[in-house]
Design a protein around this nucleic acid. Structure first.
Length: 434
RNA sequence: GCCGCCGUAGCUCAGCGGGUAGAGCGCCGGGCUGUUAACCCGGUGGUCGGUGGUUCGAAUCCACCCGGCGGCGCCA
C-alpha cells in the first residue's frame, strides 16, 4: 500500500500524536454517521478506533470504509491522534483505507444462545473473552514448562494409543488399530512410572480422553492433562511439589496477564492468596467431620460428591488438600498408609470458589506382591498389567506422582463458569463440530 | 445411566383454555461530521425441529423420534 510503517493496535497507542502509522486487523465495530465513519479495528493485541472523515480522508477511501462490514479484514493508514472520545484515548485518522477480505454478514451480534455459539465456535473463538482465555492458557503452559525445568524434571512424550485401561471403571474411547482394539489414553501415569527408572523425574502435558457420560460444567471428553512422576519421593514431597507448581503458575499469570484477567473481571485478590504456599491440608476423616458439622448426611467410607466438595471449599480461601482417603475409594496403584493400611497415601487438591478437584495424586504401590493383590482384588486382569508389574521386579523404588486437569485450573484462574471456555474446541458428547 | 428444561424469522424470544403467525435485534434502502452494543424513518423476513394421531380446523392437544441446554453419578 505504501512505505508507512506497520504497527499493531497496541503499538499505535505508544506513538507520538501526529505520527503516521499503518494498522491492519478486523472490523470490530462499524458506525457510519454520513460525514464520518468510525471503525474500531481488532488485532491480536487489542482494539483501535479509525476514522474516515471528509476533513482528511480522500473520498474513495471514505467509500471503502463505508463498505467495510463487521469482521472484514482491512488495512488503514493515517495520522495518530489523542482524543478522549476514542476508546482507549487514541485513534487513527485515515488517509488511506483498504478492504483485504470483505466479510459476509457476521452471524454473531450479541445475545446468541450457547447452542448456536458452539455450532459456530470457529467464529465465536474470535471473541475478546476467548482470546483473553487463550492468552492466559499460553502463559500457564509456559509456566508449567519453566517450573519443571527449574526443578530438574525431564519432559517426556507418552503414547496416546494404548492397549488397556489405566484405571478400572472409567470408560475408554475404542479405536480400530488395524483390526485390533486399541484405546485413547485416559492418563499417561503408568508410562511416566516406566520412565522414572532412567530419568527419575519426568513430566508431560498431553491430552487425556474419558468416555464417561459426564454432563457437567467441569467435564470434557478430551482434556489436557499435566502429569508428573518422581522416584525416591513420598506423598509429602509430592504435595509440596504440587503446591509450589500451582503457586508459581498462578503468580506468573498475575504478573503477565493482568489485562486479560481484568477484561474477564476476575477478582485477582483470590489468586494472590494462592501464590503463598503451603496450602491447608485436611485428612479425609476430617473432611467427613466438617461436612457432618454442616449437617450433611455422610459417613466414613462415602465418596465426596460435587456438592460435598463445594461445601468444603467454603472453609478455605486458597486451594487445599484432602489426604488419606479410604483405600477402596482409590485406584489400584495407590500405596496404603503403613500406619493405617485402610487408608491410601493419596491426595486431591481442591480449588476454592466452588471449583473443586483440580489435582489428584498419590504415592504409588512399589511392592510387587501387594500391587498384584490390589489388581486381582479389584477384579482387574494381571495380564493387562504385566509390564507395569515388571517395574516392581527390577529395582523398585518408592515414588509418587500427580495429574492436574489443565482446563479446570484455567477455569479457576480465569474465573470461568464453564469448562468449555477453557479450551478452544471443547469436545462433549454429541458435539464434535467444528 | 438418572433427573429437569427447551426447539416458532438470520439471532433472541412472545403467542400454546385449538380458528391461517408477532416483537426486538440483524439485514436492505434513506438521513445524520464524534459514534461508544450509536440514533431516526421506511422496507425485507417463517414448511412454528420431524413423523403420525385427535379435530371441520393444530405452532397450540396426544404419541413416538431427532436435536440441544442445565444438573447428578464418575472423574481431572
Amino acid at each position: 500500500m505504501s512505505s508507512t510503517k506497520l504497527y499493531s493496535t497496541r503499538e499505535v497507542k505508544l506513538l507520538e500524536p501526529g505520527s503516521r502509522a499503518r494498522v491492519r486487523g478486523w472490523v470490530y465495530r462499524h458506525r457510519d454517521l454520513g460525514g464520518k465513519v468510525f471503525i474500531v479495528v481488532r488485532d491480536s493485541e487489542g482494539i483501535l478506533q479509525m476514522i474516515a472523515s471528509e476533513a482528511y480522508t480522500p473520498r474513495e477511501y471514505i467509500e471503502e470504509a463505508r463498505r467495510a462490514t463487521i469482521e472484514s479484514s482491512i488495512i488503514g493508514e493515517g495520522v495518530v491522534a489523542r482524543d478522549p472520545r476514542a476508546p482507549g484515548g487514541v485513534e487513527l485518522r485515515l488517509e488511506r483505507f483498504e478492504i483485504v477480505g470483505l466479510a459476509s454478514d457476521f452471524p454473531i451480534k450479541g445475545g446468541e444462545s450457547i447452542d448456536y455459539l458452539l455450532d459456530i465456535r470457529h467464529l465465536w473463538i474470535r471473541s475478546r473473552k476467548l482470546t483473553a482465555v487463550m492468552k492466559i492458557r499460553d502463559t500457564i503452559h509456559g509456566a508449567f514448562r519453566e517450573f519443571f525445568k527449574s526443578r530438574g524434571f525431564w519432559e517426556v512424550s507418552p503414547p496416546m494409543l494404548t492397549q488397556a485401561a489405566v484405571e478400572g471403571g472409567a470408560t475408554l474411547f475404542k479405536v480400530d488399530f488395524f483390526g485390533r482394539p486399541a484405546y485413547l489414553t485416559q492418563s499417561a501415569q503408568l508410562y511416566l512410572e516406566v520412565l522414572i527408572y532412567s530419568l527419575e523425574k519426568v513430566w508431560t502435558l498431553a491430552p487425556s480422553f474419558r468416555a464417561e457420560r459426564s454432563r457437567t460444567r467441569r467435564h470434557l471428553y478430551e482434556y489436557w492433562h499435566l502429569e508428573a512422576e518422581e522416584a525416591w519421593v513420598h506423598m509429602d514431597g509430592e504435595m509440596k511439589l504440587v503446591e509450589d507448581l500451582v503457586a508459581y503458575t498462578t503468580r506468573r499469570v498475575l504478573d503477565e496477564k493482568l489485562e486479560e484477567l481484568s477484561f474477564l473481571k476476575r477478582d485477582t485478590e483470590k489468586l494472590e492468596q494462592a501464590t503463598k504456599p503451603p496450602y491447608p491440608r485436611i485428612r479425609y476423616e476430617e473432611a467427613i467431620e466438617l461436612l457432618r458439622r454442616k449437617g450433611v448426611d455422610i459417613n466414613y467410607g462415602d465418596d465426596l460428591g460435587a456438592d460435598e466438595e463445594r461445601l468444603l471449599t467454603e472453609y478455605f480461601d486458597t486451594p487445599f488438600f484432602i489426604t488419606h482417603f479410604p483405600l477402596e475409594l482409590k485406584s489400584f496403584y495407590m500405596k496404603p498408609d503403613p500406619h493405617n493400611p485402610r487408608e491410601a497415601l493419596a491426595f486431591d487438591l481442591l480449588a476454592p470458589e466452588g471449583i473443586g478437584e483440580i489435582v489428584g495424586g498419590s504415592e504409588r504401590e512399589d511392592d510387587y506382591e501387594r500391587l498384584l493383590n490390589s489388581i486381582t482384588s479389584r477384579g482387574l486382569d494381571p495380564k493387562d498389567y504385566e509390564w507395569y508389574l515388571d517395574l516392581r521386579r527390577y529395582g523398585s523404588v518408592p515414588h509418587s506422582g500427580f495429574g492436574l486437569g489443565v482446563e479446570r485450573y484455567i477455569m479457576w484462574v480465569a474465573g470461568l463458569d464453564h469448562i468449555r471456555d477453557a479450551i478452544p474446541f471443547p469436545r462433549f458428547r454429541d458435539r464434535l463440530y467444528p
